[in-house]
Design a protein around this nucleic acid. Sequence first.
DNA 1: GTAAAGATTACTAATCTGGTAACATTACGT
DNA 2: ACGTAATGTTACCAGATTAGTAATCTTTAC
Lengths: 158, 158
Amino acid sequence: MFTIGRNTDYASRIVLHLASLEPGARVTAADIASRRLIPAAFIRRIVSRLSAVGILATVRGSGGGIALARPAAQITLKEVVEAFEGTLSLNGCVESPESCPLAVTCPVQQAWIGATHHLAAYLAGVNFADLARKTYGLKRGSPPGNGSAALRLIKRSL
Amino acid sequence: MFTIGRNTDYASRIVLHLASLEPGARVTAADIASRRLIPAAFIRRIVSRLSAVGILATVRGSGGGIALARPAAQITLKEVVEAFEGTLSLNGCVESPESCPLAVTCPVQQAWIGATHHLAAYLAGVNFADLARKTYGLKRGSPPGNGSAALRLIKRSL
DNA sequence: GTAAAGATTACTAATCTGGTAACATTACGT
DNA sequence: ACGTAATGTTACCAGATTAGTAATCTTTAC
């Protein structure tokens, strides 16, 4: 079971959170931490990374905070993943074919490359405006398994 | 960069090797090890696993060896991957949604699920008969970057 | 100048990974 | 029966990675 790391998971929650607010809204890291159940100390590093990559824009100092650097529709899940996992690559030989001495005749390598591209294309097709819309829809539709503390937390944050 | 593990990589080479031989051919682990550049000690555990999962069939004792348990066309890359990585799941919440307290309202979870299914479908569409055919084609076409020890090794093994 | 915010770095404990080795089991041949 | 050739199983190790914590630095509004 190869999965994305916690950082990537948290990062996607953070971006989703910002995408769910009014466009241009700016909030503090501590705020996101409490509402999205992410260890506060983590947020700083993650946000720092996301802003270095151009996904978030931060303002330092008192009164500062965090916002999306671009419209949510222009931020894809692929970008967020790659910010923490590096360029997508299901096997080492996808990035550096020379690392495998058998590469010249290896058809499995082609399969890894194909799978990697497939996955990347899918993730590139997911943008956070669409994702945020789905969350928002919850408030109107029939709320599933209502009443949990977590659910109330999220709703309050919107 | 989340990648498959070495075990999975080696496993795919092993299955490919067997798929490249005449149907039903049986060879020893040591033989595969030397021809496919896999640490000999590794092969046993990997083969053992692959046979437990029903991909390979082994015969113990003197004169024994390893063979495909089924026609290569019926063995997919997904099976091999899952034998070592477990059920495909790009994030923990794909397997066990209850593990994330925010899951009820989390649209990103849906994205992870979608991406996982997409990837799984791709890998399920790759079978080793097709892969082996591609290797074989090398012997006829114009050999690229010829003359390497590795290449000669592979050719000899076919 | 002080307090509020993000930026950066260092550190730890736990887990995972790749790899090695030793030993156990099975079966064929003589 | 015994020896040998083969797979099966287990234990072990060193290094890397991961999740998480904490301390400190830098910027900025008031």
